[in-house]
Nucleic acid binder design. Structure first.
Lengths: 166, 166
DNA sequence: TCCAGATAGTTACATATGAAACCATCTTTC
DNA sequence: GAAAGATGGTTTCATATGTAACTATCTGGA
């Protein structure tokens, strides 16, 4: 049995990322979901449209890494709650422009400071240099994942060297 | 309208964490789920039991940050596939000890190098110092989240200062 | 000893999710 | 300008998931 056939979950980066992210996301969601009756996908759509009004559903999906079904459903419930407006594209009958309604904008204005406050609290354990470092690492890794998933990956196997020291 | 009521998703750390993590997790899952007919929760249970045989379902839940229902379901399907063994606790009738069966161990031995290889590829974009830095940041943030979620959080609002510079 | 919680684990139900099929519109090509 | 495909968006269906209720066992106090 080869010695590299050992997996220490506490040292396995994808696993640690996942646990951390789930805790952060649900901690944040807990704060706005009850208060504003807003699901995570719904909030994501609103967040994007708050920043860039008039996008199509497709654009929203592209920006959030959500799939189009998820966006479609979130948009529908937001429209039903009159938190969004939808207007037809002048040229293309398939496309509709989405924006926050006044009601949606009001919610957005409430949630944004809440989200930023929670982010701040989350990051408060890091000093400024560490925050910059985290920022840079996330950027690098995200770009790397873009490239990795763009091209289908071969059957990689671990080499004896550990990826990350304790 | 206060000026801090602006949210740039591309600079919002929880959001970036979430997108990155989802991409990483599903990239890894894609590699073992088809090949070994293994869901993410199932693999997590196996990973923990491979490392620490004889744990109870409750212990597994505690270690993976999964909830007990999720663990229960994963354990059931793994037992049905004869990938785990379950033995009664000698003292406590409620508790059962779980371990990988020979079949389970064989799968574990196949998946572990695959997972480690993918982790290595994922981290390959970082140099050693950056990998250490990532490791340390994840530890710090995780410990911080532990403390944050332990005590119920007050209603934090953002201060004018941005949390993380570009 | 007996009763009132705790705790391990399962079941049930309602909701969320993803993949694939689908509809409508647009574009390209001949 | 008609047919073949591409694209935006929705619906369908099967599965995954979380919450809450439930069963069974254990523990501690009167």
């Amino acid at each position: 049995m080869p010695s590299e056939t050992r997996l220490d979950l506490d040292a396995f980066i994808p696993y640690r990322l996942s646990v951390l992210t789930n805790r952060v996301s649900s901690a944040i969601a807990r704060h706005y979901s009850d208060r504003f009756d807003l699901s995570i996908p719904e909030w994501r759509v609103m967040a994007v449209l708050g920043q860039a009004p008039g996008l199509s559903a497709r654009d929203v999906a592209a920006r959030t890494a959500m799939d189009k079904v998820q966006v479609s459903r979130a948009v529908q419930s937001l429209l039903a709650a009159k938190r969004l407006t939808r207007t037809a594209h002048s040229q293309d009958g398939r496309v509709a422009h989405l924006s926050l309604s006044a009601k949606g904008q009001a919610i957005y204005n409430d949630v944004v400071p809440l989200a930023l406050g929670l982010e701040k609290q989350f990051l408060s354990v890091l000093n400024l240099a560490e925050q910059k470092s985290l920022d840079a690492l996330l950027s690098k890794l995200s770009r790397h994942m873009d490239r990795m998933t763009a091209t289908p990956v071969a059957d990689f196997r671990a080499e004896p060297t550990a990826a990350v020291p304790g």
